[in-house]
């Protein structure tokens, strides 16, 4: 089984890492809605049809020690090819095959420098903004429950 040391292989491309992360957090409907605002993408070929499997999620003992296996989670992956030969991959948490295929398609399209600006502006940035807004609302709700405990003088 694949290990997860991350030391081998290609250097990460920060821009690609970012769009893949944004697409992994977006629903199929959200992605499709954004994509619909653009001219239709070229037909893609499935190299690996959407397939649901598991990823073993790991934690660290004590939070910062050696890894242990916490439990598995469902993940769906897909790989597609464009007519120009570009290949897109997706691994997204959950079982949404359509999300995985759309994410793989966008990963392929976004690798084309000519298409990238429009796709970032119309799809990735709005999705990222919506995700940031959800996170900010969560943080604001948490902040409203921040307390100060006062220790009574009589307590030890």
């Amino acid at each position: 089984m694949s290990d997860a040391t991350g030391s081998e292989g290609a250097a990460p491309d920060p821009a690609r890492r970012r769009w893949m992360g944004v697409l992994a957090r977006a629903s199929a409907a959200e992605i499709a809605e954004r994509l619909a605002a653009l001219p239709p993408p070229p037909p893609h070929r499935r190299l690996r049809a959407p397939e649901t499997g598991l990823v073993m999620a790991r934690g660290r003992q004590g939070g910062d020690g050696a890894p242990f296996n916490l439990g598995e989670m469902t993940v769906t992956r897909c790989s597609v090819a464009l007519p120009d030969g570009r290949i897109g991959h997706a691994y997204v948490a959950g079982r949404d095959r359509r999300q995985a295929e759309l994410a793989a398609l966008l990963d392929a399209l976004l690798q084309d420098a000519d298409r990238r600006p429009a796709l970032l502006a119309a799809v990735i940035e709005p999705l990222a903004a919506a995700q940031a807004a959800r996170a900010a609302q969560q943080a604001a709700r948490a902040a409203a429950t921040r307390v100060q405990f006062f220790t009574m003088a009589t307590m030890r």
């Binding site: 089984m1 694949s2 290990d3 997860a4 991350g6 397939e51 499997g53 598991l54 990823v55 073993m56 999620a57 790991r58 934690g59 660290r60 890894p67 296996n69 916490l70 598995e72 993940v75 992956r77 691994y91």
Partner: peptide
Amino acid sequence: PRFAASLPL
């Protein structure tokens, strides 16, 4: 099928 193990959370 098991695809991978995650990096430690």
